[in-house]
Amino acid sequence: MSAPSQDNAVKGSIITRAIIYVVLILFVIYYLLPLYVMLVNSVKPLEEIRSGNMMEFPKVWTLEPWRAAWSYAQIGVEPSGLRPYFINSILMVVPAVLLSTILGALNGYVLTKWQFKGHGIVFGLLLLSCFIPFQIVLIPMARVLGFLGISGTIPGLVLVHLIYGIGFTTLFFRNYYAAFPTELVRAAQIDGAGFFQIFWRILLPSSAPIAVVTIIWQFTNVWNDFLFGASFSDFDSVPMTVALNNLVSSSTGVKEYNVHFAGAILAALPTLIVYIVSGRYFVRGLMAGAVKG
């Protein structure tokens, strides 16, 4: 998105430009509104939400909903708050992201710089695997995880996210390394460097941008996943998204909207922070995922 602005601009009167700005600002409101509602109502007492107006600032400010959401709200059968599940998600995300990124980098390196007969088919199959509806693997995966003795565990979830992340990480690195000059690899070969030395000494030092893109992409995807979490987790391995859904859609008791909003923000916080800190790379990942080849 760093492309220089160019002169596509419509030259119009001040009124046209004013209208453009008004429309743009209306959409700013549209996109920010749900976030605003969540924030404002997460610091209101429940009573005020039910009797008051969702759009208004709290009359009484309170951080109690946040405390509840984090440490003692009823999730499923446990009044544990979201904290243990937040930790579950971290424990799941970190190894899944790192492993799939490392494998993706190696795969991309092989598929561009050490092409062998059939490399196109291998890449095609890896790429296509990004797009399967995951419903198709739920049944056999449940059985295989059971067979491996890791069903309902965090290592089980790591394995699942690792496997179904390889396609995208390989795609990212493959496209990046495809633009990496092959002559550098050849020069290194003449210098006597082997497969891993070339990767380690020549390609990897230049891979920081794509590594960041890949890590952000994988982090966002794995953190935000719900389907695998809902299918393959057990009481002590439930990830954040599933816990949030349990919190929000539990049918017992009073609906504590303020706690729900605080919980939703907590679940969104890690990816939002990543987005705010490195939005450029986030967008690049989205683009790379959309425009293939």
Binding site: V37, N41, M54, N224, H260, F261, G263, I265, A268
Partner: peptide
């Protein structure tokens, strides 16, 4: 950047 679960929760109550 948000999870669909977060989006769903926000819009559900909104």
């Amino acid at each position: 950047a948000l999870s669909f679960i977060v989006t769903g929760t926000a819009w559900k109550w909104f």
